[in-house]
Design a protein around this nucleic acid. Structure first.
Lengths: 219, 219
DNA sequence: AAAATTAATCAAAAATTAATGAAAGGTTAA
DNA sequence: TTAACCTTTCATTAATTTTTGATTAATTTT
């Protein structure tokens, strides 16, 4: 297991790293939260992040907020402030646990294990909901801001899951696409939907391209 | 302040009730969670709910889940299990705070106050009130000076919130609009309503245009 | 490994749709 | 009837969306 840590107290960081290493947990500490953030952007193989709230110069909660814009990695907040509101806000922003300082490294280890165990479960709710009458599609509870053509294309794909739909079919089905438009049009629209879903085009999760045919939606 | 409590330890419940009473907090305990649930259905004047997780026969988290189907009353979970996952799940399901047992009644009081204070932030008053008989619509307490057609259009939109209404529908519904008038008429009327609401047409708050369809009212 | 095919994406043109001012045509009430 | 007000159309501008074309990247076939 590989874990990132944002902690400005280098001494503490080293003690923890030492300790967790014995239990097969590899810790990489970042003193500078911004460097940490960009590292999280690139290296996507951390299993969790331990975040110190009482950072100098920047609010740890801000870091968390920024992080959540692109990642849903498990986060354990650790803090000397045992302030209630921080705790609640932290959890609201998407932290997974809260650990008041000072704490026993053993405690941290237990929580790390607990969290990654929980993560491995598939706690799945319907991620996409189509509101036909509202012309809206909600993704993870939030509405996507789709243009009419995007809405129609995505709806059609979602309604035919796991089935590759060819471009021609989409051109004919979608009212907002002209039937004699080039099939490249579809590619562009798919690209934009993926952007709005924040999909990684190299390894898209929901909209797969089916070479020679078109696209398919995999829930 | 009036608070509901679901707690099977009657003695503890009574101690708490006694204590909180001194601070002007009236507590009503329900031993049976199901009776509590139906009470919450009927009496909607509780300011918060204190929920014991370690209930016999039923999981407190289930109660919370059921409760959340019809109410968003603030909930404080209290539990002897200081189990991590319960805490996280509880907060995910929409609890507002978590209080491990045993605790000082004072602590409970503080959290109750904190939560109801936080909750009281969005004091949602209906910003629009339609007086059908007077043919008036009040916005933030003040009457808008609307023409008959404007009144009908805005009323219809308000009465179908979050639903895009197409121009044709508005033409047919509104008595003061001729059915064979051009659909552009609607645009003009919307424009004037927005002006009277002092909406920023670039980013309207209440009347959104839904491209290709019409307009929708978002409260 | 090179060639050929297909896909992703950017930027920009073309097309569509919306916002709004101005004014014509109606309606209503004094 | 006139005046005041309202609805409707028209014209123009602005904004957004669809479509295309070009470029680069990825994948498959040769």
């Amino acid at each position: 297991m590989k874990v990132a840590m944002i902690e400005d107290d280098i001494e503490l960081a080293e003690i923890l790293a030492e300790y967790l290493k014995k239990y097969g947990i590899e810790v990489e500490n970042y003193e500078d939260p911004f460097i940490a953030l960009s590292a999280m952007h690139i290296a996507k193989d951390y299993d969790a992040l331990i975040l110190d709230l009482t950072l100098p110069g920047m609010d740890g909660l801000e870091i968390l907020k920024k992080l959540r814009e692109f990642s849903d990695i498990p986060v354990i907040i650790s803090s000397a402030r045992s302030d209630l509101s921080d705790k609640v806000i932290g959890l609201e922003l998407g932290a997974d646990d809260y650990l008041p300082k000072p704490y026993d490294p053993k405690e941290l280890e237990a929580r790390l294990k607990a969290i990654t165990r929980r993560r491995s479960k598939p706690p799945k709710e319907p991620e996409f909901t189509i509101y036909k009458n509202r012309r809206e599609i909600h993704y993870k509870g939030k509405p996507l801001h789709l243009t009419p053509a995007e809405f129609e294309v995505l709806s059609y794909l979602i309604e035919h899951p796991n089935q590759p739909i060819d471009r021609e079919e989409l051109l004919y089905t979608c009212e907002n696409l002209s039937e004699n438009a080039s099939e490249k049009t579809i590619d562009v629209i798919i690209s934009r939907i993926r952007q709005k879903l924040k999909e990684d085009p190299k390894k898209p999760h929901y909209i797969q391209s089916v070479r020679g045919v078109g696209y398919k939606f995999t829930p």
